[in-house]
Amino acid sequence: MTESFDAVEVIMAKRDGHRLTDPQIDWVVDAYTRGVVADEQMAALAMAILLNGMDRPEIARWTAAMIASGERMDFSGLSRPTADKHSTGGVGDKITLPLAPLVAACGVAVPQLSGRGLGHTGGTLDKLESIPGWRADLTNAEILAQLDDVGAVICAAGPGLAPADKKLYALRDVTGTVEAIPLIASSIMSKKIAEGTGSLVLDVKVGSGAFMKEIDQARELAATMVALGQDAGVATVALLTDMSTPLGMTAGNAIEVTESVEVLAGGGPGDVVELTLALAREMLAAAGRPDVDPADALADGRAMDVWRRMVRAQGGDPDAPLARPRETHEVRAAA
């Protein structure tokens, strides 16, 4: 097969500050997915993008090329609207765990396709895998069936969903290009758009424990992702939330699950509860249910019921004891 472009020429174009053409972007994403563009070449291009950036049309085309590398899901047959949430990650960010069952308990289906740890941040799937028996990998048919029955699913994106992103996601983690805003935005939004959710709430972290250290960076990332979502017909909103201190009182897979269950039981740290409810209200409003108060579903146990059903549906035991850290260190705030 004769290739349309040469990888080195594409790398040099971005290295020298030029914008990439639509055909160049389409080719390089497809060729990387096929293995024609090597990891070291894509690493060089990712670094050039980090240093020289992309304009909005470039980012939109890169995102579209990532989506086109795989399949698209369709939740239009469900009896309830869908809403998803994505966080850019931080220390102790366990919000997805109580949030997905809470929103489902309020009548909105939550197809939460989550990831693993990236950089210094913990991954939602890594945390849930501390529950004995729980499995992250589901077929599309299993995802649809669980959404229809339980109302919420937290799982890994299937191999057919934006496979280009799966390769690039892992590469960015080991090449110092995690913070590239065009690559963050296209990575998140390619999966969310291909996933087929009807609405999306973005939790963009800013502060010392986030990838975005400065508020202007966070605003740029949020605006870029909202524009990508809206252009694709997905109702998208973003919140900028503080990550200058860890969320909650724990950082670690199993102990963050335990803390999340405490929130679902009506307790838990105040900051985790506050952010969970804020994001739930945004998701419900985006899905057309602004009249529902998610605090009621926490108080009356409906959210906990959905959590237990969700865990069981994916092979986990919600009553199983979770691992405890062998060593703990308590850090107290100054009086």
Rank of each mutant, 00 (worst) to 15 (best):
S199P: 13
G315D: 07
T2V: 12
P132V: 02
M47A: 15
A223R: 12
Q24I: 01
M12W: 12
A7G: 09
C106M: 03
L51V: 13
S114G: 00
A48K: 11
T88H: 05
G158Q: 14
V261W: 06
P57M: 05
V234W: 10
T63H: 02
E195R: 11
D93L: 11
A227I: 00
M42W: 13
P290T: 09
T88F: 08
G119Q: 10
E40V: 11
V263S: 06
R281D: 05
S260Y: 02
L171S: 03
L113R: 14
L50D: 14
P132H: 03
H18F: 11
T139M: 03
K94F: 03
L138A: 08
L113W: 06
S260I: 04
S244T: 14
S208F: 03
E71L: 08
R308G: 01
D126T: 12
E58H: 05
M73S: 12
L240Q: 04
T121S: 14
R332Y: 06
G89P: 10
D30G: 13
A31Y: 07
V311Y: 03
L264T: 07
P132S: 05
A335D: 13
P294S: 07
A31F: 08
D319G: 09
A323P: 00
K14V: 11
G288V: 08
D165R: 04
I11M: 10
G117N: 05
G92E: 02
I25E: 02
T245K: 13
A170N: 11
D26G: 11
V331P: 01
H329F: 14
A251S: 12
D22Y: 03
I188H: 14
A194Q: 09
K127Y: 02
D6I: 08
W307S: 05
A152W: 04
G233H: 05
L147Y: 01
V29S: 06
V204M: 03
A238R: 00
Q41F: 04
G158P: 10
P159E: 06
V292P: 09
G92A: 04
E3S: 11
F5D: 07
I49F: 07
E58F: 03
A64R: 14
A218W: 05
G266N: 09
L144S: 01
S130Q: 10
L102C: 09
R326K: 13
V204H: 06
H120M: 11
E195L: 15
R56D: 14
R172K: 15
G122R: 12
A170D: 10
S199N: 05
V10T: 12
G17I: 06
E195T: 13
T258N: 01
V103N: 08
A320R: 11
P321T: 05
D22L: 01
D231E: 14
T328G: 00
S186V: 04
T82C: 05
A152L: 03
S186C: 10
K191M: 12
K85Y: 15
A251W: 00
A31R: 10
G117W: 03
M249S: 11
V226M: 07
G158D: 09
I181S: 02
R332E: 09
A43G: 15
L228Y: 07
E3N: 09
A295P: 06
F5L: 10
P98H: 05
G288M: 10
I154N: 00
G151H: 01
M243D: 12
R219V: 13
P182G: 08
C106E: 04
N52P: 01
R116E: 11
V261F: 00
S186T: 14
M249Y: 02
R19T: 15
G123Q: 07
A48H: 12
G209Q: 13
D22F: 07
P246N: 03
R172C: 15
